[in-house]
Simulated scan of single mutants.
Amino acid sequence: MPHFLCTTCGTQHAESPDPPERCVICEDERQYIGWGGQQWTTLDQLRSDHSNQVRTEEPGLTGIGTTPKFGIGQRALLVRSPGGNVLWDCVSLIDEATIRAVNDLGGLSAIAISHPHYYSSMVEWSRAFGGVPIHLHAADRRWVKRPDPALEFWDGETKALHDGITLVRCGGHFEGGTVLHWPAGADGKGALLSGDILQVCMDRRHVSFMYSYPNYIPLPADEVRKAVAAVEPFAFDRIYGFMFDLAIEKDAKAAVQRSADRYLRMIGAGGNGP
Rank of each mutant, 00 (worst) to 15 (best):
G65Y: 05
H117N: 13
D203E: 06
R30W: 14
I33P: 04
R238H: 11
T41I: 08
N215Q: 12
S109A: 15
T62I: 12
A229D: 13
G73H: 07
G106I: 01
D245M: 10
A235I: 00
P59H: 05
A97F: 01
L108Q: 02
R204A: 01
L264C: 09
L161T: 04
P183W: 08
G270P: 06
P233F: 11
G188C: 09
R258Y: 01
L105D: 03
D148G: 03
T62Q: 04
M122S: 11
Y216F: 05
L108I: 07
S81Y: 09
V79C: 13
L219N: 03
T166V: 10
F153S: 06
T66M: 15
V102F: 04
M122G: 01
E249I: 00
E249V: 04
P218V: 00
I248G: 10
H162Q: 12
P116I: 02
V54Q: 06
C201S: 08
T67L: 14
N215A: 05
L264T: 00
K159R: 15
I64C: 03
A229T: 06
A191N: 04
E29G: 11
R146S: 07
G60N: 09
G176L: 01
R55S: 12
G107K: 12
D89R: 04
G36C: 10
W35D: 15
V231I: 15
I239H: 14
G131L: 08
A252I: 03
V200G: 07
E57T: 00
S92D: 09
L87V: 08
I33R: 12
R142Q: 13
Q45F: 00
P183G: 10
S109F: 02
L78R: 02
A160Q: 12
R30F: 12
P147K: 02
F174S: 06
D18L: 15
L77S: 14
P116S: 13
F236L: 06
F236Y: 14
T67V: 15
L192W: 03
V86I: 11
G164Q: 01
F129P: 06
A252G: 08
E249F: 05
Q199T: 05
M266N: 15
I197Q: 02
T67N: 08
C26L: 11
I113W: 05
V256K: 11
D203H: 06
S120L: 13
T8E: 07
K226D: 09
K189A: 15
L61K: 05
A110S: 15
Q38A: 13
R75N: 13
Y213P: 00
I94M: 09
D237H: 11
G190V: 05
I113C: 02
T158A: 11
R80Y: 02
S48V: 02
D155H: 08
S51Q: 11
R127Q: 12
Y118N: 14
H50P: 04
L93S: 07
P220M: 02
K253T: 08
V168N: 07
A247N: 04
E29K: 12
C26F: 08
F209Q: 03
L219P: 07
E57N: 02
Y119M: 14
